[in-house]
Design a protein around this nucleic acid. Structure first.
Lengths: 231, 231
DNA sequence: TTAAATTATTATGTATGACATATGCAAATG
DNA sequence: CATTTGCATATGTCATACATAATAATTTAA
């Protein structure tokens, strides 16, 4: 029995000419198999070929420039460029504009990633980055001021991402930070665990040093459990 | 000692007026704390306030429309809308344009997520979705044609994401699919494990049914290990 | 003849003015 | 009072002109 899927259906909205031009251009770029650095037709040629004004073409091209798919220099014309897959996400990562459900899902995604990262961390940990991690923990243990604790908490987890050496994951995490920040500050998410079950950064560090990935995951899960219960 | 971070530095590029207008507008939207549905000033007002032509304003606004941050209706003016954090990523997920290093990182991210997902799967599995998963496995076991096997492989892993009930993670995975597809087809990524160590979808299913998250992670890791070694 | 300086050409960037169109409001009409 | 009509308004689209920077072509000078 075919399973019905409605997620790919987008709500009907009025399509302006620029929207259509944009879609046409995207299809064109893909179909023509452009490579990085390849020149694309000039604005007037596109306008004539599609039967619209240069203005409409330019508004559409402006969008592609935002996405980093094309670049233009005076007189040299426009060329295809390598887009950055995460470059524009930060623009829409405004907790003010996101709904609660999405924020929860984003938060859950963070948990999934930090738990799933364990194997890679054990694969790529070095004395150098373990030492950096230790320094953060030490600074954390020397203070009890809330803002500093928050700061070191962020530093600790960021350092874990850094140890993974995966720039894409790192950048993804940085993008999501405003959401975590908002959830921590505005929504006053607080630990619901008795203190005896709390796993500190020090514990995580020690497990990463001398333990196993399985152990690390289990501790990390507990470390993040107060959130986990919520979502 | 302050750690130097160069990732936030973007390469210098020539900023057009439209780029500057875009940045100004973004800052303006954030600073004024606009809520969903709030109207924004009309084009002419913005143009006059910023001392540029309506054309420049419109090109910048066109970008925000692409991002889903604003929406406009004739005469009613423009309003702030709820952006979709993943809506535009598919446009830049063109394996043709991505570099190998990024694709590898994206692939690694998939592995991280699928391993990290284990706890949530055990939390949210139901008889209904386990049955769906079983049907996929059964269909897979009945064929030995390559294209069908690929299809069921995708279906199996997609179903896991579905069981997680996290729409954001699901959509993220769908976005990344072109990259996986490309890596499988074009790069001819093949298993490097002896057959005896291979973990089938059937095994994963059984563990999900009767095993533990830890066990599932370990099996999933092995299931994906041929990739894991590579990255 | 060759190198430097000048000029012309070209394609993108910006500005302006005009008109189309749909929407909401107000006025007019029955 | 309900319906219709007309008007004002803000966005959508187009055409045109000019600015600007990079390249090509041409001229000038040693």
């Amino acid at each position: 029995m075919k399973q019905l899927n409605l997620t790919t259906l987008t709500p009907i909205k009025y399509l302006t000419q620029v929207d259509k031009v944009e879609m046409s251009l995207e299809a064109y770029f893909r179909s023509e198999n452009f490579q990085i650095g390849d020149p694309i037709p000039k604005e007037m040629e596109l306008a004539e070929a599609m039967g619209v004004s240069r203005t409409a073409i330019r508004e559409a091209l402006s969008r592609f420039r935002l996405l980093g798919i094309i670049e233009s220099r005076k007189n040299r014309g426009m060329i295809i460029t390598r887009p950055d897959i995460l470059n524009n996400m930060h623009r829409v990562m405004d907790p003010q504009l996101l709904d609660g459900a999405t924020m929860k899902e984003i938060f859950e995604m963070r948990l999934v990633i930090e738990i799933g990262l364990a194997d890679i961390l054990f694969l790529r940990k070095t004395n150098a980055n373990l030492k950096k991690l230790e320094q953060i923990v030490e600074k954390e243990e020397k203070t009890d001021k809330k803002p500093e604790l928050v700061k070191y908490d962020i530093e600790f987890h960021s350092m874990l991402y850094e140890i993974s050496e995966n720039k894409t994951i790192q950048r993804f995490q940085k993008l999501l930070m405003p959401v975590f920040d908002y959830m921590n500050n505005e929504l006053h998410v607080k630990s619901q665990l008795p203190d005896t079950e709390y796993v500190s950064h020090r514990v995580l560090l020690n497990v990463l040093k001398n333990g196993t990935p399985e152990e690390f995951r289990s501790k990390m899960k507990r470390h993040l459990l107060n959130y986990f219960e919520k979502v």
